[in-house]
């Protein structure tokens, strides 16, 4: 084999062949470095010799050694006693409260609660129906009005707005 090619007309860079070996080795080294930087596909974990061969035998041994876990009721005995005692006390307290019948009357209810009930509950009562059950005898004007009205103002009002005094039910009313 000829070491040179006289007829091709191709030319080589200076010292190309002399430096070829070094540049090739550099390239190989850099490729190896790149390979190293790649993520490994194996974790590097290892197992003892014959580990997988003996595994079934080991599992069967362990299976026989560890019978199905039965939770002993004895070890929880004190907790059961505690739970039973607590339940008994609670039942006793609830029982006492159930037997105690408390009686309530209107004075136990806050006025605001009654107002709210009348306002929001759908009572479907007309003013006349309410008037029928309202104890007019005991009703005072200040029960329905927050600010009292002077008698002279009432008379003035009646004087200017009332054409027929017969419309007024004055039988049981002082006005």
């Amino acid at each position: 084999m000829k070491a040179t090619n006289k007829n091709s007309g191709f030319k080589l860079p200076e010292n190309y062949l002399e430096n070829f070996n070094n540049s090739l080795l550099d390239k190989i080294a850099s490729q190896e470095e790149m390979e190293k930087d790649k993520l490994p596909t194996k974790e590097g974990f290892n197992v003892p010799n014959d580990y997988f061969n003996n595994l079934h035998k080991n599992i069967v041994e362990k299976l026989n050694e560890t019978p199905i876990k039965v939770i002993s009721i004895k070890s929880y005995k004190k907790y059961y006693y505690f739970a039973i005692a607590t339940a008994a006390i609670l039942l006793l307290l609830i029982g006492i409260n159930l037997n105690k019948t408390e009686t309530y009357n209107m004075s136990d209810l806050a006025n605001a609660d009654i107002d709210a009930y009348l306002e929001y509950a759908d009572l479907d009562l007309s003013a006349y129906e309410i008037a029928e059950v309202m104890p007019i005898d005991n009703l005072d004007i200040i029960d329905v009005l927050e600010v009292g009205i002077k008698e002279e103002n009432i008379l003035d009002y009646l004087d200017s707005n009332m054409d027929d005094f017969n419309e007024l039910n004055i039988e049981n009313n002082e006005y």
């Binding site: 190293k36 993520l39 490994p40 194996k42 974790e43 590097g44 974990f45």
Partner: peptide, 14 residues
């Protein structure tokens, strides 16, 4: 670990 024979990059990956 005697059962780990990974190199530096494998350890780094872990």
């Amino acid at each position: 670990d005697v059962y780990f024979e990974g190199d530096k990059i494998q350890l780094k990956l872990q």
